[in-house]
Design a protein around this nucleic acid. Structure first.
Lengths: 147, 147
DNA sequence: TTTGATTTGTTACAATATAACATTTTAATA
DNA sequence: TATTAAAATGTTATATTGTAACAAATCAAA
């Protein structure tokens, strides 16, 4: 489930195999997002990218983010407009996140399949599922203080 | 599951009972979102609101949206930055949407509880869930054309 | 009819994201 | 190895989405 080989190497291999270029912006953005303990916004990525590249502009960050996201190495947390490294080790059609509304930490969990009650809903509606995103909001173990 | 009484009346009753004011901006915004076949963005709401109020500004739309959303009468579709009328008839902690990436139609489905595999994940992580949001992307029945 | 809480009006701006086009890089080809 | 075409980036400008801050109005209760 969890990654066993260095992320950068995996992505480099992936790109080599698929004929994509693992360019500086892509490497740096991957590294920035991977090092972030919490989801990080595009403009914060851009700011950190500025320490590596000379005066990068928003499209540089957004393009790298888009590339990494399309290929499943990072995920966008929609309710936060922020990005997080994929904590799973293989491509998946769906993501589940537990988002602590107090400290902002996000935990990704992996499910191979969409839970059956949801599958049933899509079947009943004749809906052809391509991908899914589950965002669970609450308080993480660390922040939770029972009354 | 589905609504049986007029939405506007329900919201009016709710406000009366809870001591909120069901003001013009709130009524109009509710009506605009309710009439929209698809999720509608805040600025499109604002534009339509302009036919009812004189020159409304963004905060007027956003405030009404926030109010209606907080009280469960509308939902925000995070992946579309857009809002949709609640298709269920009672307050719920979680939402599920089937989003057609071709025509943009969204179907809300109701689940009383979070599916067990997800509940298990939250239990294992000692995560205290307060609300959840599931966005299922794909192609709806109408748009789907088998090859 | 005053009061205080709620809600709105208004101005200004912050934060997030993309379009469009020029330039560079790269690997494959000629 | 020079050429070329695709992929990717650089750059400018702007679009889209969302909010802070404070003044004014509304409304129910005292």
């Amino acid at each position: 489930m969890a990654r066993e080989t260095p992320l950068i190497q995996d992505v480099a291999d992936y790109c080599l195999q698929k004929g994509f270029r693992f360019t500086e912006p892509r490497q740096f953005v991957l590294d920035i997002i991977a090092r972030s303990k919490k989801p990080i916004g595009a403009y914060e990525v851009l700011e950190k990218l500025g320490k590596k590249l000379k005066n990068p502009k928003p499209p540089t960050a957004y393009r790298a983010i888009e590339f990494l996201s399309e290929h499943g190495f990072i995920h966008r947390i929609e309710s936060l407009n922020a990005y997080i490294i994929c904590q799973s080790d293989h491509l998946h059609k769906g993501s589940q996140f537990m988002i602590c509304d107090q400290c902002g930490t996000v935990l990704e969990t992996h499910l191979c399949d969409l839970p059956e009650p949801l599958v049933k809903k899509t079947r009943d509606a004749h809906f052809h599922l391509t991908r899914w995103n589950v965002e669970l909001h609450g308080i993480c173990q660390t922040c939770y203080k029972p009354v």
